[in-house]
Design a protein around this nucleic acid. Structure first.
Lengths: 342, 342
DNA sequence: CTGAAAGCGCTTACAG
DNA sequence: CTGAAAGCGCTTACAG
């Protein structure tokens, strides 16, 4: 680090021109003669000058940097969203910074303040697993942010939120999954993971119930177990459910909130001597890189996370006020099969 | 978004004080009377004012934002490093932005320019898998950056690089792995993944060779297969190696560059009807979240990625010019066993 | 094609 | 305890 950073003034005086001219060649304006352009470029090269994006940001009122708020990165699901968003941002000449969800969802005084202070050119916020009582606080944080920069929402976006968004219709997804399992003859279908979230028409629980109803199957509360989204939690929840039930009532199929929870269920089933898929079908969600390498390979849902990231950036930059729904599709692998004859 | 952002001038005039005073309460200076502090705070609250970190950055010459350059996020290994770094940064009052490795490693004119332009308060760069011919270019990019901000290196840092760093001694790690497998009676030990990297004493190939030598085992070129770090590549490389060898020469143990490559090897072995660990021991690296859920659970190396991220941030902020080595340890699971009787 | 000057929104000595 | 003023390093009309 040199103690004294070189500035546009240094370059101007080196090249014998005004700072306005240096600024012009920096921004690639055409209206500069070749001769002076060369002088300036030489001076820049000689001093290894890099214009300060901070100063530029202050005077031009644009930073060419975007942000994305994600719950956590340790689930590769979010890493995929980030990757998609970052690559698209890069293509459009922006950088993408990542912020943890806790920047929004704390009970401290004005949690979004830190985000609002950096004058980003736009922000993507992933809203997910919001318990009903969090909604109001989160919404007001989002309104706050919007005052300072455009905001695009991704994740399971409540329809009542008036923001441009790329959202997942988790309800429709669940409905299809239940239909798929029912078509394989399953009647005891468990659903593991998440928080109670039946307050919103796009949430999984709604689709779970609709799917059961369509298949004329009863809703069995014991088959709906809540837990957080890790493999450990999934294993514990699944084991807990089975241990509370006489064996004849054990589910023949389990839908996991995500692939991590599904992995936990699979491990737990293996410990209990339940063969997958012969005695238990398992289906996850997110289509993580490791799903094909599990034993048996895990059936999952491809939610096209990278595309979600890409689209969110495009909406942000274009300023379109659109509400889109992310595509998704069932990826059949070997973890689901016909229900065992009872 | 309001078209006209509220500034410190608005607050000052609302509260009937000077902008200097507003600035003082903003920064929590003690030398402000309670009465005026309250007036200012009220005005801030009323207008929902958020100071611009851009303007603040320009005048105070510090941005409280750090950056980290990582090869890719889709391997959870890097997500763990990032998470560790981000959490520590947050604790110390900084934000952490992520930049792709390609910001450094392109052949375009001055790839590090974009990074240098944002006046970060510090940058962590993960250097890994640098083929010999890249070294010079990367090093000069790093020198460039250093001119504008403190830089801390992580990953497999060449000892010749004169930067503060938290590096992995991959050579020592490999040596221990080979020793471990040799202690289980293995004599045909393959090593899959990475690029040729024997130019540097910390690299894996060095440790591989040393380990074999210690165990008085021959170095068999056919057992050293290069590939990139994904599961698919690992599977293809492993299959390729076996198909080039008469069965009696098939390795009884394989060391994978990382867990992804190990997963590929396991899948490939399963396809070929090779039982793990009875006929083939497999060992990965990074101890990814999914390793306990593979069948059999994968023996791996815990490289304490989060701690690496944490330490790197601490070095950056403290300004210590230390070269540290990251801890690591073997995590034994079921994928390694005694060599089969031949 | 080029320069002088104002302005972006803050912080920070310097006075008082 | 508070204010006037200079300055951070750029961009951008406005003249010429």
């Amino acid at each position: 680090m040199n103690s004294e950073n070189v500035t546009i003034y240094d370059i101007a005086s080196d090249a014998g021109v005004s700072i306005a001219t240096v600024s012009r060649v920096l921004r690639g304006e055409a209206s500069v003669s070749e001769a002076t352009r060369k002088k300036v470029l030489d001076a820049i090269e000689r001093r290894n000058y890099r214009p300060s994006s901070i100063a530029r940001g202050l005077s031009s009122r644009t930073t060419h940097s975007l942000g994305i708020v994600l719950p956590k990165l340790l689930n590769p699901h979010y890493a995929m969203i980030f990757t998609g968003a970052q690559e698209e941002a890069r293509k459009l000449g922006y950088t993408m910074s990542l912020f943890p969800w806790s920047s929004l969802d704390t009970r401290e005084y004005n949690p979004a303040a830190m985000l609002a202070e950096r004058r980003l050119d736009g922000l993507i916020v992933c809203v997910e697993y919001l318990p009903p009582d969090h909604d109001e606080r989160v919404l007001s944080a989002l309104q706050d942010l919007r005052q300072y920069m455009p905001v695009v929402l991704i994740g399971c976006v409540p329809p009542s939120y008036d923001f441009p968004s790329v959202s997942n219709n988790n309800a429709a997804m669940m409905e299809e999954i239940v239909r798929y399992l029912a078509s394989l003859g399953h009647e005891k279908i468990a659903f593991i993971g998440g928080v109670r979230e039946d307050h919103d028409p796009l949430r999984r629980d709604v689709g779970y119930e609709n799917g059961l109803r369509d298949a004329r199957l009863p809703y069995v509360s014991s088959y709906r177990v809540y837990c957080r989204g890790t493999a450990e939690d999934g294993a514990a929840a699944f084991t807990g459910m089975l241990s509370s039930l006489k064996r004849e009532y054990w589910p023949t199929a389990v839908i996991a909130l995500n692939d991590l929870v599904a992995m936990g269920c699979m491990a737990s089933a293996r410990d209990l001597g339940l063969a997958i898929p012969e005695q238990l079908s398992v289906i996850g969600c997110d289509n993580l890189f490791c799903t094909p390498y599990l034993v048996p390979p895990l059936t999952s849902i491809n939610t096209h996370q990278q595309r979600t990231g890409t689209r969110a950036v495009q909406l942000l930059i274009s300023g379109e006020n659109k509400k889109e729904t992310a595509d998704w599709e069932l990826v059949e692998r070997a973890s689901c099969a016909h229900a065992p004859k009872s």
